[in-house]
Structure formats: structure tokens, C-alpha cells
Design a protein around this nucleic acid. Structure first.
Length: 924
DNA sequence: TAAGTCACG
DNA sequence: GACGTACGTGACTTAT
């Protein structure tokens, strides 16, 4: 059975004026004004898109007014006579808008002598008579008389449908009596006289009481209120004439039949040609996406060779809505915008939005202050005039979320988090910091100031210049608008310039894939993790602090006593003097750089092994002092007062290998190796009714080494699930795996780690506390058993020296500057880094891929309440309602174990251990 | 701000 | 022949 045909009639004239007035002027390159054309085209296209998503129209037409003279001016010359002529810059746009409608493949209909409303009424009647459904796309109240069971109106700006109820809300009567009401109350806009002194409410009341206009006028004498009775009797003719003006003609001799309005797909060629002619870039992208399923959200970069220098750029401060609207129109036309936010804090979870800067082309940027408070107490400076924050965000939200508008930024994760807290999902994005990182990790930092100096030869205004430094530093909301504009707008300008320089290099330097697949998509994932945070048991941490404090005090007393004189145990300098001068212990070494005695844990352990008590106590002291100051004391202060959880910040571009780093606080180095330390890990707990889930890759780096260096024996061991360290021991030392001495296995484990780090006999000897010559023998034995390893190392170093960088399996480049250093020691360091980087970096890439896929995989499995909280290099930590734990585990494992595919088919399996518990320690 | 130390993978 | 040396991070403390 065929669906009911559905005719959509679009009130073109209404659309035009709304487009014109909603948007500030814009012109195309030849100077023709096209603001209304742009707005109209966008509205029309949006409507077509929305319709395609929901109720599909079978028939569609856009209706226009032909000329100002109609039969109504014959009846009443004053009809619509007070309307000012169309604005000068709108006039040339009328015909272009008709072309736009045709380009979209929609009939554009107009008739001499009739208003658009009459044509709409005529088609609505014809269609309704044939049993169609009809939707009139307009918010014009004059059309409300047409509403009935088959005919409704749709206000596309407010996205609101107007049916019988909607009409009653507006006029107080049903659609069939709207004409009567309008005849009485008139319409000042159209200059319909009506009856003086009667408005909508009175009119509706009268019509409801008397049934219709004719009855009312006949029985006007019965009206009790004398004044109302008089005016009605006096103006009966005016009311009847008004009815003629207001009542729509529904039998106009329309030029097309209903069949001619059947919906058809537009010809993409002419449509795109039309859009090109108007230079509507963002619309072009949307249209391409809609009609061809093709979306290029990364517009090609315009070469801006003529760009003005940063010094001569023009930066404006936006404090009026009209100026913001103008920027928004330009952003829509450009299809890209550089965005930067200014806030009161570097901590995204504590920061309040103070202002937003935007830039579209180099040399021009604006700053929109929304949260400046002057000096705060109003004593010296008042709160400066600025736009309302909620209003600004409301207007920017559609732009920031528009899939056809690219948002460019420097370290956008921060801004994304700020906007996310305001309910805005910024996408799609490009991040200049990540571009620089993909191109040149290891060569330099990727902060904006550094990149600006490097690529633009320009030192941006420093934050200190505007906010001061040290004790007198103020938050950004206290900065004057002038200073804030100079600083913030420049940041957006510079970021936009960097984008134009870095973006084209991604493809030409073969790191586009890394940027697109490993960097860009991770940004929203990390933003969500950071905002989620993790719960900690504050009382437990406080109690641990006290416990540690007591131990520290006791140890301090013992140490002072043993030393024979008071000194600061925390001072390595003083400790060295006590140990190696006062006490005259041997085995001390002064560092070559500073001449200070070494007092590291390895030194103290050696002394303790000789039977000295003081160094042993110092080791204990240091352990407690470390745990207290770095963890139990400070983590308590890191609990966010609003969320009650700890929110770390992940840095995406700080390592040379592609690993993330975590700071403020660092949650990637929470203790686990010592029993005392594990108590701290137990204080990381799940929310009530939830469990923490920990999933970690088992020996991922050794597995990757086995794959990259192509070592059959190692690969087979992993495939068979054999204990890899025991296997190494049996190969190197010739001892059987069964019943192996744990010490032997430990040595083999150290060798395996050594291999990954770019082994040296010295390093291995020191690690194991054995003779260097013995370490050398082990290494030689290892290389002999697995000859591919040495070949891999030699080849890697040779290639790295040639190019200056090494690459991971996924194409990430890790530049190693030290390789070309003239200092041989530095070069040796570079060689070891070159051996390690592809292994560590590939593992980092693998877990990045897992993290990028994880949120969708959880959603697809219906596990929307399972949250990914932390990443610790080879481990992901989740929080899940108890009832979801069993369902979450296989999803997490599948994503992580399959993370290399399909880009890389690893010749070793990836193994993931998953555990759960009430706290992080238990989850391991 | 640098150096030393130590927490993690 | 001497020199220093396992890879990658961040935070805290003392000393300058």
C-alpha cells in the first residue's frame, strides 16, 4: 500500500526576509551581495536534509510573491502600503534566490496578481481534496487559516510544527475562525484596518461567543459594553472589507498541476556549479556530503602568501551581537575557523570560561570576552561591557558542532573540555600541536610559543605580559579587555598560520596517517577520560599520611643518632658528607659534573648490604617520605571539590616515542612495586555499586620486538603461551624450564628488558649486580641464540643515522637528535634510544588504537555506563557497574587484543589480562 | 632554575 | 685510551 502523498509548500518570501534579517551582509568576490542567498540556501538545504531524515515529502514547491500589486490593492489601496521598499542590497538577491531553488531541483512558483499565500492556499486545497497530507513551511500567521486535519504548518527556524492546537494558542479560535478574528483585530504590519480598539483577545472572545463574523455584526447591538458596541456598529464595513483582505484565495489559476511538484533529486552538477558561483564553501561541503555520501571535513589549505605579518595584524574585541553574527556568517562561508579559549585556570575541571578568540584568515582575529570581571572587587575597575556568556555560547554552539566546519586549535583537548563542560561537543577538529608532533617529535617541543618562533619567526605576547608574574599574577578574568584582546586574538591568529604551514606537510612527509588515525581521534577520548576522573578514598589516604609521618619521625631520630650530629636526611649533599666524610665509608663516588657524593638507592643498598645500618634507615626514610609527599599528602589536595574525584591531564605530545604522559597529578606512576606503596593504590576505588576493571597487555614490548626483529623462537614461544623469561633463561643459560631457579629466571628477565632498552654490558651488570664480563657473556649468548636481534639493532641504527629518525610499525616518526651529536657518548645514547623507540612507540600506537575504538565498542555492546578512566602505557582502567563487569571484560579484551589490526597483521598474538575489584590494587 | 632522587611502564 | 652508559616519563626536595 502506497503511503499518503505529502506536499510541502515553502513560503519563499518569508524565508527570504528571515534569511536577510538573521544574517549580516556578505558579498561574493565580485561584489554581489549574497547574504540572504546564503541564508536562504542553507535554510532550504537544512530543510531538505531534515525532511530526508524524517517525513519524506512526495511533493515540494517554494512559493514566492510576484509583485506588490494584487487584487487586494484594488479592494483597499492602503493594503501593505506602509511597507518600506526592500533594502537596496536585498533587491538583486531575489532572482539569485529563485535560481537557488531551481538549482536544488525544486519548483519555484509565483503568479502576477496573487500573493504567495494565495498560491499556497490553492495548492493546499487541491492536495487536501485529493487526500494528501500538506505541510506549509512558514511561520506567517496569515497562513494559519489553512490548517486542518490534513494541513499543518512548520516553523523551520524554531523547528516547531503548528497544528490546530498551535493555531488556537495564537488566535484563541480554531483555524476555521481565524479569518473572522483577523477581520476584527486587523494587522498593522499588512495595514489591514480591522475594528479599532479590538485586539486578538477581544476578537477571539467575540467570535467564540457569536459563532462567526456575520452573526456578530448582525447582533452587534446586543453587546453590553457600550464602547465596544458602538465601534463594532460603526466599523462593520471595515471588518467585512478586512475579511476580503485577509481571506486567502484558494482557487488561483496556478500554472502547475500537483504532479509537477513531485520531488526529484537535484542534478549535482548544476547545483554545485551554482554554489561555486556564490562561493559558498561550507555549503558545498555539506551538499557533497548529502548527495554523494562524501565528506571532506578538511578543506584544502589556501596558500596565504600575501598574509600580513603578525605585527601588522588587526585584532578586534567583540562586544555586540551583530559583530558576532558577522563572524559566524564568515565562518560558515569559510568552512573553517581557528578557536582558542581563555579561562581562569590551567586545570580544565576548575577553569571558568573568560573569553573566546576566533580567526579565519591570517592577520585577522577577534576576541569575545564573556567573563571579565575587572579587578574583581569593583574598587578600581568595573566589570567591562561584554556579551552575555550564555548568548554567545548559544550562537557559537551550532558552528562548533557543525560537521562541515573545521575547528582548528593548538592543544584543542583543553578547549574541547572547556566547551564540553558548557554542553558543546566541538567537532571536527585539527590540532597544530599534534601536527607538529606527528611531523617532528623528538626535535623540539610543540607548545605554541615555540612553534611560533620556529615557523613564523615571531615571539607571541607572553602570558606573563598580560597577567603578571609571581605573587602579583592575576587570573585572566582580571585582565583588561585591551590587553586580553591583543593576547588572545594573537594566539588564534598564530595558530591559524601554523595550521596553514603544518597541514600540507602531513601528506608530503608521510605522517598524515599517524595524525589522522593515532593523534586526532584520541583527543575527544582523552578529554572524556580526564573529565570522568577517578574516585579515591580520602580518609584512607589521610590515615596513611599519619602512618607514614610516624615512621618518618622515628627513622629520622634513629638516623640522627647514628650520624652523631644533626643533619637534614632529605639533603643528598649533607647525607653524602655524613656517609663518606664523617663516617669515612668507602665505595662513594663524586659526580663528575657537580662533585657531589652520589647517594642514590643503588649506592645506599650496596652500603646496607655491607652491614651499615644508617644507609638502610635512610632508604626506609626515603621510601616513606616519597610516598607521603608525592602521594598521600598531595592526592588529597587533588580531589576536585565538585566531582569528588581526581582528574589527571594527559599530554599527547610530550614524549619522543608516542607514549602519553600524565600530570597534575601524574596517575601513571602510582606505587605498586612495594607493599607500602600498594596501600596507596588501594585508595583508588570504584564508585558505589561499581567495580574497577584493569586490563593490561602482557609483555607487549617483547612481543612487538619478536614481530619487528622477526625472531622465530620468540614468536613461537608467544604463540604457545610459554613463560617468555623462563624460555630466554633456558636458551641463554641452557637450564630446563621445568623447575627453574627463580634467580635464573630473574636474570633472564633483566636481559629481556635490557634488549628492549638497547643493551650494554655495563648496564646489565649494574642492574644484576654482576661482573661486567659476565654480563657481556650473557649478551653474547643471547645474540647467538637469537641472531635476528643483532641484525635488527644494526639495521635500525644504520637507518636512523641516515634519516635522523626511526619509525613505528604504524608509521610514527621518532626523531633522535642525539644520533648526530658530535659527542660520542651522546651518540651512543642516541643509538640506544633508536633501538628502543620503535618498540616502545609501536606499543604506544597499539594502545592508542584500542583507546580510540573503545568508547564506540562499549556503546555498540550496550555498555554505555562503562567508563574508561585511565591509561598507564600498557594498561587501561575502567569503572563499571557491578552488573556490567562480566559483559564488559570480553569487549575490552577483544578491542585491545585486536588493536593492531587491520593496519598491521602481527605475527605474535597480543594477550590482555583483565581483572576487577573494589580498588585498583585488587583489579590487578 | 638545576640537580638529585624515586615513583611508574 | 678514557669516558660514562640500559628506554620513556613527572613530582618533590634541596641548593643555588
Amino acid at each position: 500500500m502506497a503511503e499518503t502523498p505529502h506536499l510541502y509548500l515553502i513560503d519563499g518570501s518569508g524565508y527570504i526576509f528571515r534569511a536577510y534579517h538573521a544574517l549580516p551582509p556578505m558579498t561574493r568576490p565580485d561584489g554581489t551581495p549574497v547574504g540572504a542567498v546564503f541564508g536562504f540556501s542553507n535554510m532550504l538545504f537544512k530543510l531538505i536534509q531534515d525532511l530526508a531524515d524524517g517525513e519524506k515529502p512526495s511533493h515540494l514547491a517554494v512559493i514566492f510573491d510576484a509583485a506588490r500589486k494584487t487584487f487586494r490593492s484594488e479592494i483597499y489601496p492602503e493594503y501593505k502600503a506602509h511597507r518600506p521598499p526592500a533594502p537596496e542590497d536585498l533587491v538583486p538577491q531575489f532572482s539569485i534566490i529563485r535560481d537557488a531553488v531551481k538549482a536544488f531541483g525544486v519548483p519555484a512558483i509565483e503568479m502576477e496578481g496573487y500573493e504567495a499565500d494565495d498560491i499556497i492556499a490553492t495548492y493546499a486545497k487541491q492536495a487536501a481534496d485529493k487526500g494528501f497530507k500538506v505541510t506549509i513551511v512558514s511561520s506567517d500567521k496569515d497562513l494559519m487559516q489553512l490548517v486542518n486535519e490534513q494541513v499543518t504548518m512548520f516553523d523551520s527556524m524554531k523547528n516547531k510544527r503548528i497544528d490546530y492546537t498551535g493555531v488556537v494558542e495564537k488566535f484563541g479560535v480554531g483555524p476555521d475562525r481565524v479569518v473572522d478574528v483577523q477581520s476584527l483585530c486587523g494587522d498593522s504590519v499588512d495595514n489591514v484596518p480591522g475594528v479599532p480598539g479590538i485586539g486578538i483577545k477581544t476578537a477571539a472572545q467575540l467570535i467564540t461567543e457569536y459563532g462567526d463574523l456575520d452573526t456578530l455584526l448582525e447582533r452587534a447591538g446586543e453587546i453590553k459594553q457600550p464602547k465596544r458596541r458602538e465601534t463594532l456598529l460603526e466599523n462593520a464595513d471595515k471588518a467585512r472589507m478586512s475579511r476580503e483582505l485577509v481571506r486567502l484565495v484558494n482557487d488561483a489559476p496556478v500554472p502547475f498541476g500537483l504532479d509537477d511538484l513531485t520531488v526529484r533529486e537535484p542534478e549535482p552538477g548544476p547545483l554545485l556549479a551554482f554554489i561555486d558561483e556564490q562561493s559558498f564553501r561550507s555549503l558545498k561541503v555539506k551538499v557533497q556530503h548529502h548527495y554523494a555520501g562524501f565528506l571532506d571535513d578538511s578543506p584544502t589549505v589556501d596558500p596565504v602568501s600575501e598574509a600580513v605579518t603578525v605585527e601588522k595584524a588587526t585584532y578586534s574585541c567583540i562586544t555586540e551581537m551583530a559583530d558576532l553574527e558577522a563572524w559566524i556568517v564568515r565562518i560558515m562561508a569559510a568552512g573553517q575557523v581557528t578557536v582558542d579559549t581563555e579561562t581562569t585556570s590551567l586545570d580544565v575541571m576548575q577553569a571558568d570560561l573568560v573569553g573566546i578568540s576566533l580567526s579565519i584568515v591570517p592577520g585577522e582575529a577577534c576576541y569575545i570576552p564573556v567573563g571579565h570581571t575587572g579587578d574583581g572587587d569593583g574598587m578600581f575597575a568595573e566589570r567591562p561591557h561584554q556579551l552575555d556568556k550564555a548568548e554567545v555560547l548559544k550562537r557559537l554552539k551550532p558552528v562548533l558542532e557543525d560537521p562541515s566546519i573545521l575547528k582548528i586549535g593548538q592543544n584543542l583537548k583543553y578547549d574541547i573540555s572547556i566547551f564540553a563542560r558548557q554542553g558543546i561537543d566541538v567537532a571536527p577538529i585539527d590540532d597544530t600541536m599534534l601536527m607538529s608532533y606527528a611531523l617532528e617529535s623528538g626535535l623540539h617541543g610543540h607548545g605554541m610559543d615555540e612553534l611560533s618562533g620556529l615557523h613564523l619567526d615571531h615571539t607571541p605576547i607572553s602570558f606573563k605580559d598580560v597577567a603578571g608574574t609571581g605573587k602579583s599574577q592575576v587570573t585572566f578574568d582580571k585582565v583588561t579587555l585591551e590587553k586580553a584582546t591583543d593576547y588572545a586574538a594573537e594566539d588564534a591568529d598564530i595558530t591559524g598560520r601554523l595550521w596553514r604551514i603544518l597541514k600540507p606537510r602531513l601528506a608530503s612527509e608521510q605522517v598524515m596517517g599517524v595524525y589522522e588515525r593515532l593523534e586526532r581521534p584520541l583527543v575527544p577520548v582523552l578529554s572524556a577520560m580526564e573529565r570522568e576522573g577517578i574516585r579515591v578514598d580520602v580518609p584512607a589516604l589521610k590515615s596513611l599520611s599519619n602512618e607514614f609521618a610516624a615512621s618518618i619521625q622515628k627513622l629520622d631520630e634513629e638516623i640522627q643518632k647514628l650520624a652523631g650530629r644533626p643533619f637534614n636526611v632529605q639533603s643528598p649533599k649533607q647525607l653524602g658528607e655524613i656517609l663518606f666524610e664523617d663516617m669515612g665509608l668507602k665505595g662513594g663516588k663524586k659526580s663528575s659534573k657537580t662533585g657531589a657524593w652520589g647517594t642514590g638507592a643503588d649506592v645506599l643498598e650496596a652500603l646496607a648490604a655491607e652491614g651499615h645500618t644508617l644507609p638502610e634507615k635512610v632508604l626506609e626514610y626515603r621510601q616513606f617520605a616519597k610516598l607521603k609527599s608525592t602521594y598521600t599528602d598531595s592526592l588529597v589536595n587533588d580531589v576536585n571539590p565538585e566531582t569528588g574525584r581526581i582528574h589527571t591531564s594527559y599530554h599527547l605530545a610530550s614524549t619522543t616515542t608516542g607514549r602519553l604522559s600524565s600530570n597534575d597529578p601524574n596517575l601513571q606512576n602510582i606505587p605498586i612495586r612495594s607493599e607500602e606503596g600498594r596501600k596507596i593504590r588501594r585508595a583508588f576505588i570504584a564508585e558505589k555499586g561499581c567495580k574497577l576493571l584493569s586490563a593490561d597487555y602482557s609483555q607487549i614490548e617483547l612481543r612487538i620486538l619478536a614481530h619487528i626483529a622477526d625472531i622465530p623462537a620468540l614468536k613461537k614461544a608467544f604463540a604457545d603461551g610459554i613463560d617468555i623469561h623462563a624460555m630466554t633463561a633456558s636458551e641463554v643459560f641452557g637450564t630446563p624450564i621445568e623447575g627453574m631457579d627463580p634467580m635464573v629466571r630473574r636474570q633472564a628477565k633483566a636481559i629481556n628488558f635490557g634488549i628492549i632498552y638497547g643493551i650494554s654490558a655495563f648496564g646489565l651488570a649494574r642492574q644484576l649486580g654482576i661482573e661486567r664480563s659476565d654480563a657481556q657473556k650473557y649478551i653474547e649468548a643471547y645474540f647467538e641464540r637469537f641472531p635476528g636481534i643483532r641484525a635488527y639493532m644494526d639495521n635500525t641504527i644504520a637507518a636512523a643515522k641516515e634519516s635522523g629518525y626511526v619509525t613505528t610499525l604504524f608509521g610514527r616518526k621518532c626523531h633522535i637528535a642525539a644520533l648526530r651529536d658530535k659527542n660520542p657518548m651522546h651518540r651512543a645514547f642516541g643509538e640506544r634510544a633508536a633501538i628502543n623507540a620503535p618498540i616502545q612507540g609501536t606499543a604506544a600506537d597499539v594502545i592508542r588504537r584500542a583507546m580510540i575504538r573503545m568508547p564506540q565498542a562499549l556503546v555498540d555492546a550496550g555498555l554505555t555506563d562503562v567508563k574508561m578512566l585511565l591509561q598507564v602505557h600498557d594498561e587501561l582502567v575502567f569503572e563499571a557497574p557491578e552488573a556490567r563487569v562480566d559483559a564488559a571484560i570480553p569487549v575490552i579484551r577483544t578491542v585491545m587484543e585486536g588493536a593492531a589490526a587491520p593496519a598491521i597483521e602481527l605475527s605474535v598474538p597480543l594477550d590482555v589480562d583483565v581483572g576487577s575489584g573494589d580498588n585498583w590494587e585488587e583489579a590487578h
